[in-house]
Simulated assay, not measured.
Amino acid sequence: MLRPIKDHQAAGKNSEPKRHWVKDHGLLLVNVGLFLVFLGGMIISGAASYSEEQQTHGGPPLGILQYLATGHFVEAVFENWESEFLQMAMYVVLTVFLFQRGSSESKPVDKDAPQDEDPRDAKKTAKTPWPVRRGGWVLKVYEHSLSGLLALLFLASFTMHAIGGTAAFNEEQLSHGLPEVSTWEYVASSQFWFESFQNWQSEFLAVAVLVGASVYLRERGSPESKPVAEPHYETGA
């Protein structure tokens, strides 16, 4: 009878780190999971909608894998990614220099913020990120690596939006007996910028609402909100 107890205890010990790991990464895991669910829904519904449109014009229906290679899908995905990464990159950079008194989304207005501390003056330990211990140009890049990554993702999405949008636009052109356009011509068109601006404006509206609303409104338990009993004009998380 002792052996099953030991095995059970061992199993509990082995599974405990897994439970901790999931808890430690729950926010990322849930968001990645939701992304995959919604992307899958977009692919399935988009393929069905696109096939219906093709059949309306006398064309053959497309399978899901075939749909993934269409300009319709590429343009739809990256048009949205483009606006998301632009919003996040701009937000990261703007919050370095700008403040909103009373907002949990702002650094404190009247006192120093830990984010502004020079890492060169920090005490180095084994747990200090390697770029900080390395110093020099490596640290210089690391200091702005978050905004740099988001900017690169925006540029990549912007490029794919242009490529996918060109393919979708040319497909529409050919269906009406009109000539195709190059990617550069499509980027210079009002259609491309309409697609971009309609997404960009909504992203910055959402940020403005969050920044302003967090001055007066609360969400107990969320790090995006100040403590419920904290005064309105207390700035920072």
Rank of each mutant, 00 (worst) to 15 (best):
Q87F: 15
K123C: 00
V109H: 03
H57S: 10
K13I: 11
L86H: 01
S145E: 11
K111L: 05
S104T: 09
A89C: 13
S103C: 09
L28W: 04
G165V: 09
L174W: 02
T159D: 02
I43G: 03
V30F: 01
S157V: 00
V96G: 00
E16G: 00
E219L: 14
V93A: 15
D118A: 04
E117G: 00
F192M: 05
Q100L: 13
G40K: 06
E234I: 02
V211C: 13
S45Y: 03
L39P: 01
M42W: 10
V187E: 04
A237K: 14
P60C: 05
S225Y: 04
S225K: 07
T166A: 11
M1H: 13
S106M: 09
V141P: 02
Q201I: 14
F38S: 04
R3E: 05
L29N: 11
D112I: 00
H72V: 05
P129R: 05
N31S: 07
S175Q: 15
I163M: 11
Q100W: 09
A11D: 11
K140W: 14
Y67D: 05
V77K: 07
Q115D: 12
L155Q: 04
L155H: 01
R120Y: 00
K6Q: 14
A237I: 07
A229W: 07
N14C: 06
V30K: 02
A69D: 04
A162E: 03
G46Q: 06
F38D: 03
Y50P: 01
D121Q: 11
E143P: 00
Y233G: 01
Q54W: 01
L205T: 13
V77I: 15
W21K: 09
P114N: 04
I64Q: 06
K111F: 03
L28A: 06
Y216Q: 00
S214W: 11
K107F: 12
S145Y: 10
G148K: 05
V22L: 13
Q115C: 07
Q66R: 03
G148L: 15
L149R: 07
P108W: 06
W137M: 13
A156M: 12
G63I: 03
G135I: 10
T70I: 09
M88I: 14
S182Q: 05
H232C: 06
N14P: 00
V228R: 02
D118K: 02
H25Q: 04
Y216K: 11
Q191I: 08
D24N: 14
I163A: 12
